[in-house]
């Protein structure tokens, strides 16, 4: 997987541009509430628990598979990247984030396996896409 396209790019907003730009530099950012310490994914400007304005924090990129599903076919998806493994990864920092698992045979993965973030570049300089690879 050299480049993300033709898969869909995110809609980048003033609230999220730092998240996507960080991913283009191989860094996974999360929102963190300075008041109640909640760590938040997807990123938000205000904490959804207490509405305090959040700060950015960098994730380790480590996590475990919370669940996953495998699609053999997917319209609009590159043939070379099928089957498609859609997964929730529970990050070491807490939140469960939607992602893809790459570089693995779906028959060899299990719930609970440890995974690490990798970042796929896009044709846009300021957008990278975080995905995960089993350790």
């Amino acid at each position: 997987m050299d480049v993300w396209e033709p898969r869909p790019l995110p809609n980048v907003t003033p609230e999220s541009e730092r998240y996507w730009e960080a991913a283009s530099n191989d860094r996974l950012l999360l929102s963190k509430c300075p008041d109640c310490d909640l760590v938040i994914h997807y990123p938000r400007a205000r904490c959804p628990d207490c509405f305090t304005e959040t700060e950015w924090t960098e994730a380790s990129g480590d996590g475990r598979i919370y669940s996953y599903s495998v699609a053999e076919r997917m319209e609009g998806w590159p043939e070379a990247d099928l089957p498609l493994v859609v997964a929730y990864v529970e990050l070491a920092e807490g939140p469960r984030m939607m992602t893809n698992l790459i570089g693995c045979d779906p028959d060899d993965i299990s719930v609970g396996d440890s995974v690490s973030a990798v970042f796929i570049s896009t044709e846009e300089d300021n957008i990278g896409i975080p995905v995960f690879r089993p350790d």
Partner: peptide, 19 residues
């Protein structure tokens, strides 16, 4: 932007819940 870009569909979502 944090979900569908990964190719999520209804059936893969419910598949994850089942697993």
């Amino acid at each position: 932007s944090y979900e569908r870009i990964y190719g999520t569909t209804n059936v893969t979502m419910y598949g994850m819940a089942a697993r």
